[in-house]
Design a protein around this nucleic acid. Structure first.
Length: 192
DNA sequence: CGTTTTTGACCTGCGC
DNA sequence: GCGCAGGTCAAAAACG
């Protein structure tokens, strides 16, 4: 999950990395036209990018290829948020309101990029017309039900498509780790 | 021993 | 209604 060069299209407002030495380059750029959109996508105007990307100054990759990546834009898949009815299963997922979704592509040897949040894998599925399986992850924070899907393109095996669904309702742990000592220092200095 | 991953089964939506 | 594809659950295994 480390060693990504990370670039986001200029469509959303961008956040510069807070970490002075990020493990990947954060270079805002337009998405490469050579990269096909991973999904039938449309621009999502009101994504909370500050929240979604607040973890990007995260952690470290000491290894892994530093390569180009590009973000492809969003999909908001409206009404249908699939949910099981409660049958024998204890799951009682109800139909939720539409959640923001967006996907981007990362050129990396690692399937999982470190976005600063903690994820737990809850499923993996072979998808049609794709050599590689799709992996399903959920944010491990108790109150947060953000999900993401990760799939490597069979067309170009160096590209990983990551699709996020939902918005984190909690601060990024790694971001807080980075900021907390700074904040403490600032509070200390502010007393003089 | 707690947490995460693996994996087969199950559920839903959709097209025919 | 049926079959397929995608998404999720949950028990067991693996891991740290």
């Amino acid at each position: 999950m480390e060693g990504h060069e990370f670039s986001i299209p200029s469509t959303p407002p961008l956040l510069p990395p807070l970490n002075p030495n990020p493990p990947y380059l954060f270079t805002p750029s337009l998405p490469s036209s050579s990269l096909p959109p991973p999904l039938e996508s449309q621009i999502l105007p009101d994504i909370d990018w500050a929240t979604l990307f607040s973890g990007q100054s995260g952690v470290g990759g000491e290894n892994g290829p530093m390569m180009e990546s590009s973000c492809v834009m969003a999909e908001n898949r409206g009404e249908e948020e699939k949910g099981y009815k409660e049958n024998k299963r204890k799951s009682s997922r109800v139909k939720k309101a539409s959640r923001p979704r967006f996907a981007f592509q990362t050129r990396s040897a690692d399937d999982i990029l470190d976005d600063g949040y903690r994820w737990r894998k809850y499923g993996q599925k072979a998808v049609k017309n794709s050599t590689y399986p799709r992996s399903y992850y959920r944010c491990t924070h108790h109150t947060c039900n953000v999900k993401k899907q990760v799939q490597r393109l069979s067309k170009d095996t160096s590209i990983v498509v990551t699709t996020y669904e939902g918005i984190h309702n909690h601060p990024c742990e790694k971001l807080m780790e980075t900021l907390t000592p700074l904040l403490k220092q600032m509070q200390f200095l502010a007393r003089f």
